[in-house]
Amino acid sequence: MTTFATPSSTTAPASTETSVAQTWGLVARFANPAELMHAAEAVRKAGYRYWDCHSPFPIHGIDHAMGISRTILPVVVFGAGAAGCTLGFLLQSFTNSFDFSIWALVWVTGYPFLISGKPLLSFPAFVPVMFELTILLSALTTAFGMLAFNQLPELYHPLLKHPGFGRATDDRFFISIESRDPQFLRSKTGEFLKSLGASSVEVVES
C-alpha cells in the first residue's frame, strides 16, 4: 500500500510509472455522500471510463452524476414474464386438454381430463397457474439477471483485500479509478483525486 501523503510526494521515482501492471488502480476516500457526488461529477467530466464509486448504501442521484446508463434488466424481465405466462398455458393445455405425445426428455402424452362437463380447453381455470409462473420466472430472472449484469458472484477482487476499504460497507465513501483506464497515470490521477477533496488517496495492488 502506498499512500500519497502530500501531492509533492507523488513525484516519485520514474519506476512507479512503469509498474502499472502490479497496480490495480487508485482508491480515494471522501467524507460524505455530498462530496462523493461532487467528486464523481468531476471524474466523469475528466473523461475517465474505468472507475466506480463505493458507498454503504445507494446514493440518490449518483448514477446521474456518474453518467451510468439505465440497465436493460426490466426488458429482460418482461421477456421472462411473457415466457412464464406462455409456458403456464402450454403446460396446462397440454397436460389437461389434448392427448398427443411430445418429446420432452422422454416421450410424454397429454391427457384430456373431462371434469363435470367443462370444456377441455378451459382457459379461465388456467389463469391462476399462468399468473404464478409469470411471477416466478420474472422474479428469478430479476434476481439472477441483476447478479449476472453486475458480474457477481466475484469472490476475489483487489479492492476487497485493500486495507481500510472494508469500511465502504459501513460508513465510508470511496472513488476507485482503475489502472487500465486510458487516462490513468498514477501520479496525475492521484493528484487529480486529491484536488477533488479526497482525504486520502491510496494505491490498490492487483
Binding site: A40, D52, C53, H54, S55, P56, F57, P58, I59, I62, D63, M66, I68, R70, T71, L73, P74, V77, F131, E132, I135, S138, A139, T142, A143, G145, M146, L147, F149, N150, L152, P153, E154, L155, Y156, H157, L159, L160, F165, A168, T169
Partner: peptide
Amino acid sequence: ALGWRGSARHWHRYEVAYLLLAALATPL
C-alpha cells in the same frame, strides 16, 4: 455476500432489481 463491494454501478442495477421484485411481489 457474493463479493459485494458497494459499487455505485452495482447499486444502480440492484435498486432497479429491488423495485422490480417489489412490483412482482405485490400482486403475488
